[in-house]
Amino acid sequence: MLKRILRSMAFVAVAAAATLTASAALAAKVAVITPYLAQPGTQFYVEAFQGVAGDKGWDVNVIDTQGDVAAVISRIEDMVTQNVDAIVINVDPAQVQAGLQVAADAGIPVFGMDAGADPLLVTNVTSNGYQMAAETSTYVADRIGGTGNVVMFIFDAFPPVQVRGVIARAVFGNYPDITILDQVTPDVSDGGIADSRAKMEAILAANPEPGSIAAVWAAWDQPALGALQAIADAGRSDEGIVITGIDANPQARDEIAKGGNFEASVAQDFHGIGAATADAVARVLDGETIKQRVIYVPTKLITVANAGE
């Protein structure tokens, strides 16, 4: 009896092992290569990617080069040597052209996960900067009733932030009674909060009348936080100056949750980007051709109502 049980158990084990090996042999091999795994946003993408990949039974190899961009090229070369089915990168494609070319020559599709658009990428999955700026600039315009002076914090030297300024200018320009009081490019070498605060203090000093500044629109959260500090420090928190940022970083969320002047920001859906990248990989592995050079994942307006989520 015991022997029989043992024998059937052994049979089950062998069968299971055989199934595992068979599925492992069939499983698509996908490499995710990033220099930025230590950053919170990247971790969210990668987790979500692995979630979808797990459902599909892919064999995912996540490689972190810890800030080393040349090593991303090296690891792409290694993955091409391994003949993986697809590669996902999370780094500026312009800096890893050498690796992308090697993959292209080998016919291995490479996908960008919030990487930047590039002819050598099948597609890049990211948030829509135009849309994020539209969310906050229309929030500001609606909130101040389409009238008043607005201070803008912009950063045109960095393309992903530059597009945000373009949209905000267009939205404010469409309201005849909204005046853009100033467009400030803060010095970001210290993170952007301190210098934005100094710039905002100067603007407040130049516009002492209550109500002379209706809103501060910032292209990202740090200048919004700096402006918030300057307004509080000047004792003008009760004038109803509306402040918005973009990115919804934890510090910004805390301030928004307090219900003060900092009223809104926009959160990127990092999980959504990871999952959508995995979907794009799945489509290509199934033989589909993706025409979209960039796939945008919807973003979410963060206000006092949902800042704590």
Partner: peptide
Amino acid sequence: LYASRVASANPTQGSG
């Protein structure tokens, strides 16, 4: 050589 490989230059790229 590093700058050529990544076709760019970054103020921390050699630190490793």
